[in-house]
Computed example of a mutant assay.
Amino acid sequence: MRNETRGTLELTLAMVLSGTLGIFVVQSGASPFTVVFFRCLFGALALGAYSLARGYLTGHGFTARTLALAALGGVFIVFNWVFLFEAYEATSISFATVVYHTQPFFLVLLGAVVLRERIGAAKVAWLGVAFAGLVLVSGTRPGDTASLKGLGFALAAAVLYALATIVTKRIGGVRPHLIALVQVTVGIPLLLPFADFGEAARLGTGWGWLAGLGLVHTGVMYVLMYAAYAKLPTARIAVLAFTYPAVAMVADWAVYGHHIGLVQALGVPLIVLASLKVTLGRAAAPAPRTAGRAPAAASPAATRSA
């Protein structure tokens, strides 16, 4: 019981940190590509130092195949962040975060297309509920270019995160910290041509926010999440995951005065409920057996953190 209590505190703190991520992105004053580049750089330093200190780099368990899969997952993760941060810029943190939490439904759909997984009637029904919630939350009109643009960016981010989840689930025998380390390391050369270093040189105090994104929201947050995974049942993880959007919405309102409208608010519980049902339904299914010396990576969708 004490172990579960500690895991609950760890995951709750990780989700609270995740909920404040949008504030750090906006306050940095940098463009999305520049933000993600430095998040990857500082995040790689943080996760690399932690993995080295814990001895995870010795006997890491990677093969050529799993390393390639981790790198591919990194491509999806990195551009998922770019699109999510673009959505923050186009609309608001609250709006983008709620739409972003359609990830589980894209995971179900991609699972059916890519992995030939069967979609039962119950999942189809919950997908319908989620779609209704998404229509309400979007609240967009044909002429509302900014909202439509933000909606598109957030949905693209959700699709990329679902793709990263499918790829990561196929990696066994490697600690999740090391998979995350590979993913953020891949982002450094990948985004190097797109990062605006002239802009970065003029950021001033924005550097503190960028460092926080890498050291806190990537290093500390991921360590807390993976520590909690080993202590908590999947149902508890799925429920605690919704601390993230709740904190993001409160933070957006408290700092920037942004909030979603009444009609949009009606869609939030529909997305939350459908997401919870789909996530728990997938968790109840028997997991494939994987061989390896180290614990397999927990699915990124288990917490859907940014």
Rank of each mutant, 00 (worst) to 15 (best):
Pro295Ala: 07
Thr168Phe: 00
Leu52Thr: 09
Gly19Met: 08
Leu136Arg: 03
Thr12Trp: 10
Val26Arg: 14
Val114Tyr: 07
Phe153Lys: 00
Ala306Thr: 11
Leu224Pro: 07
Gly204Lys: 08
Ala68Tyr: 10
Met225Arg: 13
Leu67Thr: 06
Leu13His: 01
Thr140Leu: 03
Ala297Arg: 06
Thr63Ala: 05
Ser305Trp: 14
Glu10Ser: 10
Thr12Cys: 09
Val182Thr: 07
Val25Arg: 04
Phe131Gln: 01
Asp144Met: 00
Gly212Val: 01
Ala90Lys: 15
Val216Phe: 04
Tyr222Glu: 06
Arg289Glu: 14
Leu191Asp: 03
Ser92Lys: 00
Ile93Phe: 02
Lys169Gly: 12
Ser94Arg: 00
Ala230Ser: 14
Gly208Lys: 13
Val82Gly: 00
His101Arg: 07
Val220Leu: 15
Leu262Gly: 08
Tyr244Asn: 13
Arg236Ser: 11
Tyr161Asn: 12
Gly219Gln: 08
Trp209Phe: 14
Thr185Phe: 01
Thr8Val: 12
Ser305Met: 15
Trp81Pro: 04
Thr140Phe: 05
Phe33Gly: 01
Arg289Tyr: 09
Tyr256Ala: 03
Val137Asn: 04
Leu178Lys: 14
Glu117Gly: 12
Glu10His: 13
Gly139Pro: 01
Ala180Asp: 11
Arg170His: 14
Val220Gln: 15
Gly55Pro: 09
Ala228Asp: 15
His258Asp: 05
Thr8Asn: 13
Leu151Glu: 02
Lys149Thr: 01
Phe24His: 03
Trp253Leu: 15
Leu136Thr: 10
Ala112Thr: 05
Phe242Ala: 04
Val113Arg: 01
Ile188Pro: 07
Tyr226Trp: 14
Gly111Met: 00
Ala158Asp: 02
Leu109Gly: 11
Ala251Val: 08
Val263Asp: 10
Ala53Leu: 14
Pro286Met: 08
Tyr88Asp: 04
Ala246Cys: 08
Phe33Glu: 05
Ser92Pro: 12
Arg54Leu: 07
Tyr88Asn: 07
Ala46His: 05
Gln183Cys: 15
Phe153Cys: 00
Thr66Ser: 15
Arg236Gly: 04
Thr66Trp: 06
Thr97Phe: 01
Ala287Leu: 14
Thr91Val: 08
Leu273Pro: 04
Gly214Ser: 12
Ala64Trp: 00
Leu41Ile: 09
Tyr88Ala: 00
Gly111Ala: 06
Ala294Asp: 04
Leu213Ala: 06
Trp253Val: 12
Gly133His: 09
Thr34Met: 01
Ala90His: 15
Phe242His: 12
Ala121Gln: 11
Val184Tyr: 02
Ala227Thr: 09
Phe105Met: 15
Phe38Ile: 08
Ala112Leu: 05
Gly214Glu: 09
Gly59Ser: 05
Ala158Pro: 05
